[in-house]
Simulated scan of single mutants.
Amino acid sequence: MKTTSLFLFFSFFISLSFAQKNTKDVDKSTPMVIGLIQKVPSAVLGEERKISIYLPEDYNQNDTTRYPVIYILDGGMNEDFIHIAGIVRFNTQPWINRFPRSIVVGIENTNRKRDFSFAVPNLDFVEKMGFNKKSYSTAGGSSKYISFLEKELLPYISRTYKTTAQKTVIGESFAGLLATEILLKHRDLFSTYIIITPSLWWGNESLLAEAPKLLKSGNNSNVQVYVGACDKAEELTMYNDAATLAEALKQDGVNFKQVHFDYMPNEIHSTAMHQAVYNAFKLLYPKTEYQK
């Protein structure tokens, strides 16, 4: 009993010492900062929008270096900003050097169904897809959101940070629907489109029906597109729509820099985003420049 008591005493003492040491270590710690959060007022949307920004580690406002910008439509801190910023940082490290160091801008959502969908005559098709029409009562505001991007956010980023003309947009699901609409109707806004499992079922696939005609206009020579699709067993309609979009881009698009269709049978709708973005960078920028 005495031996046990001594053991417990020394165990408590050692634990207390470690706890005190760890407390001191915490006191010496500094925050791990991965980016900035800013609030941008939007007259177009009539609300303030929160954006998250990752700057390359050697970013210096006073030097002459300028950077491409990668925009994430589902870009809040609790959405896709952190893991995509991590992919960008990984791919732009000197020992990988897949593409230039880049600024990442994540746009946090306030009402994604409203912002990412175009106006439609009625919502009957929503129930055919197994959804409740009431949950889409505010949908149809993509024209305002695109105007927000074109007239407010993109110019703000260009004024505030040292950017090049190269801009990428990343969108998945409903954000993929918006990215597709921008690609087809406002192509000059971005030079690279990463579109993942897009919700092209919206509006009875009317955007897909318009695609061949829309693709015949505009200059595509500096535009590159990645379209990713998850397991067709889970999302057959979305797989078919993504494949149809990619085929239209290849058949009806004129002089696209490159178009890639990526089928990921091992990913479901909820897991496709991370793998697709990694795959997209690898396909769009295949050369890794080894540096000693």
Rank of each mutant, 00 (worst) to 15 (best):
T3C: 02
T4C: 07
F9L: 15
F13I: 13
V26N: 11
D27F: 07
S29T: 11
T30R: 12
L45D: 09
E47N: 10
Y54H: 10
L55S: 10
N60L: 09
I72Y: 01
I72P: 02
L73P: 10
D74H: 13
G76F: 12
H83C: 06
V88R: 00
V88T: 02
Q93Y: 09
Q93G: 06
P94A: 06
I96W: 06
F99Q: 00
R101N: 03
S102W: 00
E108C: 09
R112A: 12
K113M: 09
F118A: 14
F118W: 10
V120I: 13
V120A: 08
E127W: 06
Y136S: 06
L149R: 06
R159M: 12
T163S: 02
T164K: 01
Q166E: 14
I170F: 11
E172H: 15
G176P: 09
G176R: 11
I182C: 08
L183P: 04
L184G: 07
R187E: 13
S191V: 00
S191H: 05
Y193T: 03
I194K: 00
I195F: 08
L200T: 02
L200V: 02
W201L: 01
G203Q: 05
L208N: 02
A209F: 03
A209C: 00
E210K: 08
P212H: 07
K216M: 11
S221A: 11
V225G: 02
V225L: 11
G228F: 07
K232N: 04
A233W: 02
E235Q: 15
M238G: 06
Y239S: 06
A243G: 03
A246M: 06
A246G: 09
L249H: 01
V259I: 14
V259Y: 06
H260R: 08
Y263P: 02
S270P: 00
M273V: 11
H274A: 11
H274R: 10
Q275R: 10
L284N: 05
E289V: 15
